[in-house]
Computed example of a mutant assay.
Amino acid sequence: MKKSNQFLGLPIISIQDGTEVGHVKSLVVNPKQGTVDFLTVEHEDWQISVRAVPFKKIVGVGAFAVMIEDRTSIFDLTEIPIANELVQKKITVTGAKLIDRKGQLIGEATEFFIDEDNGSILGVEIELQPKKVVLASEQIITYGRDLLVVKEESELNYLEKAEFLLTPSLEEAELEVAVSVETIEVAVEEIDPIKEKQIMLLAGRTTTKDIVTANGQLLFANGTTLTKEDVKNAQAHGPAVLAELSMNVVG
């Protein structure tokens, strides 16, 4: 889960050639689905056209960068009519007033939270003097340009922290407890599809500089031809190390 402002300004990295292909300029919200469907891309060479990355084309979002497979994941908005339509709607969420079905003003959204795996909006942060609270997306009926319409008595469902958006419901918790040990063992053995794709794209390539961990430990020397285990090792050290590795390989 990430705040919307944690996306803004992030470099967008092409895993295929290990280069920076732009920065995240803005988030394009789909008001009907309650999702972020596109990230618009800012690049100094693109002064006229507006380009965007569909969220479904994103391989991963870390603290350091947004990772895509290659440059073909970036489209001109003229090629994606729905993206252009959503951009024109200018649904920003942040700064919108919250009003309930009875017409009562609730407050103002100061931030919103996104599932970085699929772009779903998980909830919004609301300014309520003298504190801020969080409201789950299930309480939101309509995403408008300047207003968010929420369910009646939504104040009864305020959360103190954004982390509580990830807390499973009672029914989900009971279902999780009911999962058999055998199913758990199988799930542990399954390969994360995103990590598997990263391994496929980086294994066999050669580093063009020393790659070090956050604490300065040498992970791969310049000239190292990466194996699958090497890429897994980089993944284990976090997104910043993986992004650094992606930008400094050839082959």
Results as ranks from 00 to 15, higher is better:
I13W: 06
I15A: 03
I15S: 04
D17A: 04
V21T: 09
V21E: 09
K25P: 03
K25T: 02
L27N: 03
V28K: 03
N30P: 01
P31K: 06
K32A: 11
Q33G: 07
T35A: 13
V36R: 07
V36E: 08
D37W: 05
L39M: 14
T40M: 06
V41Q: 05
E42W: 00
H43K: 01
E44D: 14
D45Y: 06
Q47E: 12
Q47L: 15
V50W: 09
R51E: 12
A52Q: 07
A52L: 15
F55T: 11
I58A: 09
F64P: 00
F64Y: 15
A65I: 07
V66G: 07
M67E: 10
D70C: 07
D70R: 02
D70W: 02
T72Q: 08
F75A: 10
F75Y: 14
T78I: 09
E79K: 13
I80A: 12
I82K: 11
I82V: 08
N84P: 00
L86T: 03
L86G: 06
K90W: 12
I91W: 03
T92R: 08
G95S: 13
A96K: 12
K97P: 03
L98V: 02
L98W: 08
I99T: 14
I99P: 00
R101E: 13
K102M: 02
G103K: 05
L105R: 13
I106Q: 13
G107R: 05
E108R: 14
A109Q: 06
A109Y: 08
T110I: 15
T110A: 12
E111V: 05
F112P: 02
F113H: 00
F113I: 05
I114T: 03
I114Q: 01
D115E: 07
E116T: 10
D117K: 09
G119P: 00
I121F: 01
I121H: 00
L122H: 01
G123K: 06
E125R: 06
E125L: 00
E125F: 04
I126F: 05
E127W: 13
Q129K: 12
P130S: 12
P130T: 14
K131S: 13
K131Q: 10
V133S: 08
V134A: 00
V134H: 08
A136T: 12
A136S: 09
S137V: 04
